[in-house]
Amino acid sequence: MSAEKMSFAQALNAALDDAMADDENVIMLGEDVADEQGGGVFKVSKGLSDKYGTKRVRSTPISEQAIIGAAVGAAITGMRPVAEIMLMNFITVAMDQLVNHAAKLRFMSGGQTNVPLVVRTTTGAGVGFGGQHSDMLEAWFAHVPGIKIATASNPADAYGLMRSAIDDEDPTILIENITHYGMTGPAAKPGYRVPLGKAAIVREGGDVTLITYGRGVGDCLKAAGQLADEGIEAEVIDLRTVSPWDEEAVLSSVAKTKRAVIVHEAVRPFGAGAEISSRIHEELFGELAGPVQRVASYPSPVPFAKPLETAFLYSVADIVHAAQQATEKKV
C-alpha cells in the first residue's frame, strides 16, 4: 500500500485499466460502459473505451441474457470478459447463463472448456432504491458449485480482488456495494492481488470472532470499537470471498475465541451465515462457549420509506448486542 488515497470507483477503474493494458484478452461489456455512453453509471469504466477502443469496451443493448451469454462464449475461447450487470437484481434475468452455463461448462465438458469470466455488479440497501434495486443475492451463487463470489470492503481490496478475478480461470461474480463508491482508502500498488478464497483478519481480538464481508466489515469494526470500551476484544474477519470461503481462517479464529457472530447485509434465512454457522458447529461444537449468532437483514423485500428501510437493515447496535450475548457479558 502506498500513502496515496483512492476511492472505490477509482480503484476498480485502475484495476480494469491495468488488466486491459496487461492482457489484450481482457474485454468489457455492459450497458452504458463505453465512454460515449458515459463510462458506466458509476463511472467505473470511465476512459477505458477511449483508451482501448469500443471493440474491447462495448456498450450493449439492455439484454442481460445476451450480455452474459456473449461473455460466456468469449470466455470459452480464452478471452477474459468482464461483464457488467448494472444492478444485482438484474442478474435474475441472466440466471440461466450464469447457473446453467458459466458455472457448469468446465465440469460438463470434462475440463475441455472453462469460463474465465468476471461479472461486476452493484447493489445494497440504505439509499432508497427500494425492492428491485437493492438485494444482496450472494447466497444464491454460493449455492452453485463452479462459480465464485467475492466482495471488497475497501478500495485496495477492490483493486486486488478485481485483478485476481480477471486472472482466475473460473467465473467470478464481484459485488460492489452501492454505498461504497465514494469511500476512500489507501491505494493499491499497481499489480496488487487479493487471492480469491482468502480471508483477512482486519482486527485481532481474543473474546469473540465477528465474521463478515463487504459493508459488514466497516460496521463490525465500529461495533468492535464499542465492545472494546466494555472490555470485549473482538476479532474481525473479512471473508472477501464469500464462496468458496476461507474455512481455515474462520475455524482457527473461532477455535481461539470460542465465540462467533456472523454479520451480513443479505436477509438472514438461508443466507451465507447459515452455512458458516453450520460449519463452525460441525467442526467446533464441543469447544464453543455458546451458539453461533447471526446478524442479518430482516426477511422482507427491501422497503423504500426510511423507517422501514432502517427496520430492514441490521445495525451496529445489533452486532454489539449479538457479541454481548455471545460473550454473556450483558450490560
Binding site: Q65, A66, G73, H101
Partner: peptide, 24 residues
C-alpha cells in the same frame, strides 16, 4: 463443438460470444 446445451435457446447468446471473440 464448443457447447451443447439442454436449456432451450440458451446456446444462441453463447454463439454470439464465440463470434465476438473471432471478431475482436
Amino acid at each position: 463443438v464448443m457447447v451443447t446445451t439442454g436449456i432451450v435457446g440458451s446456446g444462441i447468446p453463447i454463439a454470439n460470444g464465440l463470434a465476438m471473440s473471432s471478431q475482436i
